[in-house]
Design a protein around this nucleic acid. Structure first.
Lengths: 215, 215
DNA sequence: CACATTAATACCGTCGGTCGGTATCATAAA
DNA sequence: TTTATGATACCGACCGACGGTATTAATGTG
C-alpha cells in the first residue's frame, strides 16, 4: 500500500480492523496475518512500524473502547441540571441500553467472553469507572443531600461490581427470571442501606434487556 | 523415560508440573516444551498421549484445584453439628485463611492474575460454588430458622461475587484500609437485609490478611 | 508370544516478531 | 526551482518457537 500522508489514519485502520476481528474470533484466535489479510495491501512491516507487539494492538483497541465510554460517562457526570441521586439513576438505567443498539451490545457481549478483555474490564472498573465516574456522582449526592452514605468510595465499587458482573447477562449468563431476581435483591440491598435507587421500572428494563439478549 | 506401569502417575506428574509452571509464568508463557524440560526425561509424545491439547492440560489443572476446594467446601456444607447461619460464617471466616498457608495463598494470587484462570474462577463461582455450596447452606439456614431471606439463590450469588472479587485483595488490589472499608459496607449491606453475618472480628481478619498479602 | 498401551522423535504448519531495504515525505540550502 | 538530506512509512523475506501429528520403538500384561 502506498505511503499514507496521515499515518494516524493507518493506525486507525489497523485498530478498527483488529477490534472487528477480536470480536469475531477472540484475541488468541486472531493472528497478525489475519489483520494484514483483512486490511488489503498493508504489510506486516507496516503494522510493526506502528505497534511494537500484538499486545500493544490489544491496548490500543481497549483504549478506543474506553474512549467511547468516557465520552458518555463524562456527559452524565458533568451534567449541570441533575443532582447526584438523579445522575446515579441515569447511570443505572442506561447501563446496557442507552446509546447502544443491538449490534453494539452483541459486540460487547462477544468481547467480554474473551478472557483478556474481561480482565481489562474488571481492572478498569476499579481503576477508572468507580473512582472517576461513580464516586464523584455519589459525593455530589452527599453534598446536595440527595444521597446519604458514609462510604462513597466503597459504594461506588460495590455498585459497579454488581452492575458490571453479577447482573450483567453478557458476563454471567442468566434467564430473564434470574435477572429479575438478582435485581430485586440488589434493590432490596441498596434500600437496606438507605439508598432507594432501583425501582420496578429499572428492574423491568433489565429483565427486558436480558430477554432480548437471551433469545 | 521408561514406560510407567501406572500411567495415571505420569498424568499426575504432568498436571502437577503444569500447575507449577502456570503459577510461575502464566498459561500463555508456559510452553509444552517447558513442561517437558521440567519433567526430566518425559517426551512430547508422552504428554500428547495423555492429553489431546494444551487446553486439556489447562482443564485438568483447573479440575485439580477445584477438587481440592470441593473437599473443603463439602466438609463445611455437610457438617451435621452446625446450623445454616454458623456454616455461612465459617465460609466467610475461612475464605482466604483457613486451610491455606502463605505459599498456597501466594500461588492462588499468582494464578488469579492469569486471564484464563480468572475467567474460570468467575464461571465456577456461578456454576458450582454458589449453587452447590453457598445456596444449600442458606436454604438450610432458612429451614432451621437461623437465616431469613426470600432470595437464597440470589443471596448466594451476591455473597460469592463480593467475596471472590470485590473484597478479594488477590484480584482487586487494595490497601488494608481499603479492605476494611469494603468489609464495613459489605457488613452494613447484609445487616440491611436482615442478615447479621459479618462482625468486627471477621473484618479484622480480612484486614490482617490483606496486610500480610500487601507487604 | 501376542498385543495393546506408553513413550520417543522427527516433522509440520502457523504464530509473533525482526530486519535490511525502499519509497515517499518535509525541510531547507544551493 | 532544484536538489540534497534525514526522517518516516512501508515492504516482505526470514527467524525461532510454538502447538500439534505421524510414525516408530519399547515395555508391560494376558
Amino acid at each position: 500500500m502506498a505511503r499514507n500522508k496521515y499515518p494516524e489514519e493507518t493506525v486507525r485502520l489497523i485498530v478498527d480492523e483488529a477490534l472487528k476481528l477480536f470480536i469475531e474470533k477472540g484475541y488468541d484466535n486472531t493472528s497478525i496475518q489475519d489483520i494484514i489479510d483483512e486490511l488489503g495491501g498493508l504489510s506486516k512491516g507496516a503494522i510493526y512500524h506502528h505497534f511494537k507487539s500484538k499486545e500493544e494492538i490489544f491496548e490500543a483497541v481497549c483504549a478506543k473502547i474506553g474512549a467511547e465510554n468516557s465520552v458518555y460517562y463524562d456527559s452524565i457526570r458533568d451534567d449541570k441540571t441533575k443532582n447526584g441521586y438523579e445522575k446515579l439513576r441515569v447511570i443505572l438505567k442506561s447501563a446496557y441500553t442507552n446509546p447502544n443498539n443491538d449490534a453494539v451490545i452483541a459486540m460487547i457481549g462477544k468481547i467480554l467472553s474473551d478472557p483478556k478483555f474481561l480482565m481489562n474490564q474488571i481492572r478498569e472498573s476499579y481503576e477508572l469507572v468507580a473512582p472517576s465516574y461513580i464516586e464523584p456522582v455519589i459525593r455530589q449526592g452527599i453534598a446536595d443531600g440527595s444521597i446519604k452514605t458514609d462510604y462513597p468510595k466503597e459504594l461506588a465499587e460495590l455498585i459497579i461490581t454488581l452492575l458490571n458482573i453479577w447482573v450483567n447477562p453478557l458476563i454471567v449468563k442468566a434467564t430473564p427470571a434470574e435477572t429479575t431476581g438478582r435485581m430485586k435483591l440488589f434493590a432490596l440491598m441498596l434500600k437496606g442501606i438507605g439508598i432507594d435507587l432501583i425501582d420496578d421500572e429499572i428492574i423491568r428494563q433489565y429483565t427486558l434487556f436480558c430477554e432480548r439478549w437471551h433469545a
